[in-house]
Amino acid sequence: MNQVLLDKIESKQFRKDAADFSVGDSVRVHTKVVEGDKERIQIFSGVVIGRRGHGLNEMFTVRRISYGEGVERVFPLHSPRVEKVEVERKGSVRRAKLTYLRKRLGKGATLVKEREGRGAAETGPAAVQQ
């Protein structure tokens, strides 16, 4: 009974259009930003280096290199302030959390191997980072 009512409250807030992406993907996160009275869209693009939590509490972390400095932002998956999440390219990774990217410099820090179907093809952009 308790859980039923809690679930009812939570289920109303789930995004039906939740983006389908996984760890390792390069994404563009469109967030709503309020400046004064106006609202505009700000885009944060980078690699998804982790997802945590479940249900309404699920969050994901995006990492990018901005002016030579690593920047990470954490977004709630179901937040109405996230306009949409675009997937630029699918990554192929073997970890749930890509914390090893934090130690990387240069090109290797911004991209992970591209995924084509199941298993990665070691061609194209993937060759660049080696």
């Binding site: 009512l5 809690l6 409250i9 939570e10 807030q13 309404l56 509490n57 709630p76 937040s79 302030r81």
Partner: peptide, 21 residues
């Protein structure tokens, strides 16, 4: 007291709440 969860308000800000029947 039923339990705790979180809700988004009109501005999209997360509020931690306790649900009370």
């Amino acid at each position: 007291k039923l339990g705790q969860t979180r809700v988004y308000d009109a501005k999209g800000i997360i509020r931690p709440v306790t649900v009370v029947l």
